[in-house]
């Protein structure tokens, strides 16, 4: 049984072939899990996640879901932290462009499938789109109860008291619910679900969304879904209703006042600026003539950034 590896074939082209084959074999099983996930909104369907050619934690769940649904007519957009140009988004987009020969885009409106890590695009999604989330820890109760056998029973019995106790302890201690991201939701009045580590700013976008939302957790081997137009409620209390955080400054590049902003450190003197985390949203606003206070006229090479910033002061 030794020494039979086709060494001569083990070259770069073979790696391509290998990757495609891996995905083909896994797809059918993932597709079945997706159908169950849609039929039972918010319930985490176990699936036999496979080793992918990228590490667990880099979006293997999202990649497997995207690979399972992707067809020749799809147009794929991949974002990480809201941006198309973050290294992991670039890497995953290149992976699909190479192995599935699928059209890719950075324009939210042009995409039929959007794979995301940590954000929901600012633009309202449409019925022709599917949003695929990369999920690290799918179990919303995991940090309250580490045992799968226990949390599974809690979901079966709709026993979510523990989650409310945790949120209420926050209020008692801090005067607020101290969860800023991965804020738990209840789907279609039944399952409590982890929305993946999106900032709670994005939570309201999940409710009554016209697009299908699919969630893939590769390492934890779970898939779950929110069908279109499904009620998604962020957990809260009557006297402490869920609040979406807001920024008190507009985007420094496009002037948007209603988008999620990244804080960029501009110097070592406490200088900060805020820019849209959704790069496509920001760029399309600028293309329409919206301007923020820090928008440069000419493209600036990153190496020149510091001197340009200094020059601006």
């Amino acid at each position: 049984m030794t020494g039979n590896t086709p060494m001569a074939d083990y070259n770069f082209a073979y790696l391509d072939e290998q990757t495609k084959r891996m995905i083909e074999q896994t797809k059918r099983m993932i597709r079945r899990a997706i159908l169950k996930a849609i039929a039972v909104p918010g319930y985490q369907v176990p699936f036999a996640s496979r080793e992918m050619p990228m590490p667990y934690g880099w979006g293997t769940g999202g990649v497997q879901v995207t690979a399972a649904i992707l067809g020749p007519d799809d147009v794929l957009k991949v974002i990480d932290q809201g941006a198309d140009d973050t290294t992991n988004a670039v890497s995953i987009r290149a992976f699909f462009a190479r192995t599935a020969r699928v059209a890719v885009t950075t324009a939210t409106a042009d995409a039929t499938i959007i794979q995301t890590r940590h954000r929901i695009p600012e633009a309202t999604l449409t019925a022709d789109q599917v949003l695929v989330y990369q999920v690290p820890i799918p179990e919303p109760l995991r940090f309250l109860e580490p045992r799968e056998t226990e949390t599974r029973t809690m979901h079966a019995l709709s026993e979510y008291g523990l989650m409310h106790v945790k949120l209420y302890e926050d209020i008692a201690r801090h005067g607020h619910i101290a969860t800023a991201y991965a804020y738990p939701v209840q789907v279609a009045g039944r399952y409590v679900m982890d929305p993946s580590p999106i900032p709670k700013f994005d939570n309201p976008k999940m409710d009554d969304c016209p697009a299908l939302q699919l969630f893939g957790a590769g390492r934890e081997k779970r898939i779950y879904a929110i069908p279109p137009h499904t009620r998604v409620v962020s957990l809260d209390f009557e006297d402490h209703p869920f609040e979406r955080n807001r920024f008190d400054v507009p985007c420094a590049l496009c002037g948007a006042t209603d988008s999620y902003l990244d804080e960029v450190v501009t110097d070592d003197q406490g200088g900060r600026m805020h820019v849209c985390s959704d790069t496509d949203h920001c760029e399309s606003r600028r293309a329409k003539g919206h301007r923020g206070t820090m928008l440069a006229d000419e493209p600036v090479h990153p190496a020149d950034r510091r001197s340009k910033l200094e020059a601006a002061e």
Binding site: E24, I69, G71, P72
Partner: peptide, 18 residues
Amino acid sequence: PVFDSQSAFRAAMEALAR
């Protein structure tokens, strides 16, 4: 098999999602 399976699955997915 690759494209036909994908297409039939996608129809089933859309059918159950809507």
